[in-house]
Design a protein around this nucleic acid. Structure first.
Lengths: 114, 114
DNA sequence: ATAAGGTGCAACCGATTGGTTGCGTAATGA
DNA sequence: TCATTACGCAACCAATCGGTTGCACCTTAT
């Protein structure tokens, strides 16, 4: 999925574990080991998932001494939603309204990594 | 990705070919052979992609004689966007607004398959 | 009747993926 | 100092994925 920002975001959200990680980090930023302790998988597996989310631009890494704390950066979500609203807007009035809302200025907008 | 509606949607949208197929079908419903003729891949490959999109509830199949025409059913997009808006809404004001909009009644809402 | 066109099914292949384990490195704290 | 702790890198494995090819089935048209 090289050079495919949208694909990276959707691909990252495709895995249940990654969606759960995202929600957990949304509640409270955490480190890989912390997250792994609450899941039935190894720390390395969690780290790989976090890398996938980071590559999609959905996570921010902040080093604090010997551990690394992850927090959510939701900007790519907005762009992904914009794509969806555009495709679905032709049938669904609500989606076309969203499409307009997403393109309107409102909060600081960032760009997908690439 | 069994029994994972959201994962099916995101997974379907993760592939560039499938997103392009979705956009093409959005412009005008088409058959697998038609779509394959405009792509550098075989009809079987296209069929597999269409199956993936169908499994996510994003496409509707309509048999017409000897061919099958696909059209878009954007309902699952709405639900996927709702999930995203909920996760991202804590940081982004615009997303939290969208989250409210998505939960409000507006157009006939369908449910994800599963 | 028979050829042609569109679909479905199945086998197969190489690449990717989610997961593991093992080991090396760096920062913390007793 | 030295054990502990959090992390990174790499190898490895089974399963899944995107793609191909070959073939059988059914509908349409000559």
């Amino acid at each position: 999925m090289a050079e495919d920002p949208a694909g990276a975001v959707f691909g990252a959200l495709a895995e249940p574990v990654r969606r759960q990680l995202l929600q957990t980090i949304a509640d409270h930023p955490a480190t890989a080991t912390e997250l792994a302790s609450r899941l039935p998988i190894s720390r390395q597996a969690v780290t790989k998932h976090l890398s996938s989310l980071s590559a999609a631009g959905l996570l921010e890494r902040e080093r604090a001494g010997r551990d690394i704390r992850y927090r959510v950066t939701p900007a790519p979500l907005t762009q992904a939603m914009s794509w969806m609203a555009e495709v679905g807007g032709q049938w669904d009035d609500r989606l076309s309204r969203l499409s307009r809302t997403l393109q309107a200025p409102g909060s600081p907008d960032a760009t997908l990594p690439g």
